[in-house]
Computed example of a mutant assay.
Amino acid sequence: MATLEKIEAIIEIKTNADKYWRTFRDYRTVFPKVFSKYRSIEILEGDGKSVGSVLRHITFEGSLKSATEKIEAVDDEKRTLTYAVIDADILQDYKNYKGHISVTPKGNGSEVKWIAEYEKASQEVPDPISIKDYLVDTFLKLDAYIQKA
C-alpha cells in the first residue's frame, strides 16, 4: 500500500496577507520579472488562476527544468491554493506530488504556509527538502520585492 508523506514550511513575512496574496496570484507576470530562476510561465489551458483543467507550465533555471501544474483548489477569500504536479522531472522520484499554499495575517505581517504531500517511487528517494528550500526562498524574495515596491 502506498504511503503518503508530508513536508511543510511556515514562513513569516512583513507584507500584509491580502497584498501578498494578490501579488502571489499574479505569479505569471510577477515571478519571471522578479526571479531569474523562473524563466517563463505559460498557461496551457484556462486562465491560469481558476480551479479545474487549468494548467501552467513553468520553465526554471537550475536542476529542475520545468513543471506542469494543475490548480486543484483555490479560495481567494481565504488565500489558499492547492496544486498538483502533473508533469516534471520530480515525478521520476515521486509517484504523485501535491502542494498547498496558504497566506494568513499574523501581527503586522503574514504567515505563508506551504505543505507538500507526496508518494515516493521507492524508499531510497529522499524527502523533497530541496523543493522546500527553493519555495521558502521564493516566498521570502517575493516579500522583499513587495516591500520595495
Rank of each mutant, 00 (worst) to 15 (best):
Y83L: 03
K113P: 06
K65I: 13
S36T: 11
K113H: 15
L91D: 10
A121R: 08
L44Y: 00
D26T: 12
P126K: 13
D93H: 14
I146D: 05
D137W: 13
K33R: 09
S40C: 07
Q147E: 13
L91T: 04
D127L: 01
T68G: 05
E61L: 09
K33V: 05
E117G: 14
T68V: 14
P105Y: 04
I41T: 09
K19M: 08
K70T: 05
T68N: 05
Y118T: 09
K95E: 14
D75M: 10
T29S: 06
T59R: 14
E12R: 12
E117V: 08
N16M: 02
R28F: 05
S53R: 08
N108R: 12
V30A: 02
A2Y: 04
E77L: 13
L142N: 01
Y38T: 05
S40H: 10
W21G: 06
F24E: 04
E77A: 12
E69A: 01
M1N: 04
Y118C: 01
K120W: 10
I90F: 04
S122W: 12
A121Q: 14
R39F: 06
D133S: 13
D93Y: 09
V51I: 14
S40G: 06
E61W: 03
T80L: 03
K148D: 15
V125A: 03
E69W: 08
K148F: 12
L142I: 08
K78E: 08
V34P: 00
T23K: 01
E119P: 02
F31L: 03
K95R: 09
V34R: 02
E61F: 05
D76E: 10
I115M: 14
I7A: 09
H57Q: 07
V136C: 02
R56A: 11
W114A: 11
S50N: 12
I131G: 08
A84S: 15
Q92E: 12
F60D: 04
I146P: 05
G62C: 14
A2K: 13
E72H: 04
